[in-house]
């Protein structure tokens, strides 16, 4: 039985923690919403955030899409290619199968397959090469059961390098297809 004089103590403790706080232990902020990766040219990401919702934020963990979970199998969304070819390397088949399964199982999900090349060679030829890379990924996903109408290909050729540098290290990062959900 608690001493009647001490009965308000837990309440006071909570109030003290809540009001005054301890400088070394600020109240925990809820996890921020995962911010979508800013993409070049996407004007929606350029302006200031217009989040004017003033309702209290629930303490529960926000529901994170499995696509944004760094530990999850769907976090990686880029496959890389060798120079001047559009063949998918064997090390990416598991990754693409995982994505195929997710797209197949998740109604309403649509994916744009963005094909890219390195800067070597002519721009129009590279646009065609990026298209072939995107198409190779599209065909792979379709063969894995993904309905054709969920996928769109878009080649940027050499116009949007992931790494603006020159040399094989940069070029290897630029020869790619990105799965954009």
């Amino acid at each position: 039985m608690l001493n009647p004089r001490l009965r308000p103590l837990p309440l006071l403790l909570v109030a003290a923690l809540g009001l005054g706080g301890c400088p070394s232990a600020p109240p925990r902020q809820p996890e921020p919403e995962p911010v979508p990766q800013p993409r070049p040219g996407d004007l929606r990401t350029l302006g200031p955030r217009t989040d004017t919702d003033t309702r209290p934020i629930p303490i529960t963990e926000p529901v994170r899409s499995p696509l944004d979970d760094p530990a999850g199998p769907l976090y990686r969304k880029v496959v890389y290619f060798d120079y001047d070819v559009a063949e998918i390397k064997p090390q990416y088949t598991d990754l693409l199968r995982t994505h195929a399964g997710y797209i197949y199982q998740t109604p309403g999900v649509r994916v744009t397959l963005e094909g890219h090349t390195d800067e070597r060679g002519t721009r129009a030829y590279n646009l065609a090469l990026g298209e072939r890379r995107a198409d190779a990924v599209r065909r792979f996903l379709v063969a894995e059961g993904v309905p054709v109408d969920r996928l769109t290909t878009l080649s940027y050729g050499e116009e949007r390098p992931a790494d603006p540098g020159q040399g094989e290290q940069s070029w290897a990062l630029n020869r790619r297809v990105e799965l954009v959900y």
Partner: peptide, 8 residues
């Protein structure tokens, strides 16, 4: 002029 690529 554009924020997206222009080509050819």
């Amino acid at each position: 002029d554009s924020s997206e690529p222009l080509m050819s």
